[in-house]
Design a protein around this nucleic acid. Sequence first.
DNA 1: TTGTAAGCGTTATCAT
DNA 2: ATGATAACGCTTACAA
Lengths: 340, 340
Amino acid sequence: MGKQTETTIYDIARQLNIAASTVSRALNNNPIVSKTTRKLIERTAQELGYRPNIMAANFRTKRTKTIGVILPLINRHFFSSVISGIEDIAYKNGFAVTISQSNDNFEKETKIAQTFYSNRVDGIIVSMGMQTKSYEHLRLFSEKKVPLVFFDRVADSIPAHKIVVDDYSGGYRATEHLIENGGKKIAHIGGPLNLKIYQDRLEGFKDAMSKSGLPVDESMLIHNSLTRSDGTNAIKRLMQNPQKPDAIFCANDTTALSAIIYLREKGIKVPQDILIVGFSNEPFSEVVTPSISTIRQPGFEMGQKAADLLITEIKSKGNTLPFQKIVMPTELIIRESSVR
Amino acid sequence: MGKQTETTIYDIARQLNIAASTVSRALNNNPIVSKTTRKLIERTAQELGYRPNIMAANFRTKRTKTIGVILPLINRHFFSSVISGIEDIAYKNGFAVTISQSNDNFEKETKIAQTFYSNRVDGIIVSMGMQTKSYEHLRLFSEKKVPLVFFDRVADSIPAHKIVVDDYSGGYRATEHLIENGGKKIAHIGGPLNLKIYQDRLEGFKDAMSKSGLPVDESMLIHNSLTRSDGTNAIKRLMQNPQKPDAIFCANDTTALSAIIYLREKGIKVPQDILIVGFSNEPFSEVVTPSISTIRQPGFEMGQKAADLLITEIKSKGNTLPFQKIVMPTELIIRESSVR
DNA sequence: TTGTAAGCGTTATCAT
DNA sequence: ATGATAACGCTTACAA
């Protein structure tokens, strides 16, 4: 049975025989209004069931108190953890969070960026899609001084804050661990190399190998999109190789899982015959048999940090701080798949 | 090196010596403008780097093309699947999606609802928190005719569209399956009964039991918040019971997992000694050992359906269709944990 | 088919 | 400390 028309600050002003501007000031906690009128206004607002029209305020102030988030896929544990962390901090600071998934599709990513821009989000947080090789669609934001924070899949060439995990040392530690457990012919199932994170994991892998004097066999390096079926194809190919691997460093847990399941079907034992380490610490990794050794990425904390940096940037309008690259520590979690 | 000031439709109009209204019409694909002027306007808009100020348009039209989503926890496979489905449909219809998580906290849920209302979202999609027993905070939306769609955790007493899975028959099928596999003393680890879904799963359980002439032992019914540790406590209590269960129907996969891991530690074999069925088909259920038999809930499709219904409702402004309760089918997935 | 002009609800500037 | 008023950029009757 709601009223047809919304209460505005004018209604409150009329009721109290004061100016709308005073009402506006009171409702925005402007200390200049007297205590008595403020109380009066607050009570009347309550009585009339006043709800601020944020759209009008946004329009006027050119701020939306909204953060846009672009990421490849919502429905993935790491990403949803990050979202959760972003939402946590945003909420505490009175910001809304708008989320769109690119599905690793470059066109969609571009369109989302444009929509966010047109919607005048106060800032955006981005993790790029696997296809993304050009950054024109994001340049709009840096040009117009809309704060932008990257996480995980970052564009090195764009000046912006970046939150990443230490992919290099993650890759290094994972490989080192495989070597410590007897791995000699170690394969790597990696992601597309246009993304820095996969370059870094690969570099870590290579450096750990050469540190131990082990050769990197190019035929044992596979790069794909790291889906479940990509993983299955990769492990198949590796096992057809005349030089079969005795250990595999997978750039995510999904492909590690593919490998484990494929090898199980073929009667090849993990970790006895082949050692495996994944990356990301997906929830299933702990409970699969054998449980998957992996590199933990603090998704929730990364989201918090990203939101925190972005909001700081938004609040310090224009006085852009020097861009930071925050490298969150990774942690090797040793489970069954890599220990003989 | 961006311009200080944004291009508006007036800039375009001035450049072409036409009226701003014509520009507005052209840019909104109003068929009334002639093809020639439209082309002209589009080209000029492009040249001037025009980006519509959606805030101004929203303010004017009182529409935001935004859907608000309130759910307990983003970082949970079922919920993130739903979000993914919502986002998919919303994007295709030109809607943005704003998401907030209640963390199963009633106060936060209330505050989110108010914020969404003040932000004038065009509609909201809600799955309630476990603490939520009053619906005052949502009444605002129905009063003001803001479309509202519930999913999964619905409030039966509120008139609105509802998307649920067939929890009753899910519970029934799960229990029936346990009985078929030799379960006689069957326990149930369930959720809080203020939520309809857990009532329904329990009802399905009870009916399947009585159908087979099996007694329901009240000491074998446990209700908690279904977290990992809740599950561990529950299975502990059940195993201390003088009447130990020979099968358990868990209201989610998380507690099923807790049970499996606890029993494994105690040397009790699943499924040989105790049969287990879960609910939700979390990703880990397929790969844990033993793999968990469970009830599949089509999260992505539920999200799609919810967004679809909501957008239809939004577009049919005011002419509210009769409220639907859409019951999505559940599917029993039989894996290792329940088959002897 | 195009132009004119009012108005959406708020905030901010300037005056009182 | 409060009031009057312009302005934000767009859409939409209504007029031409």
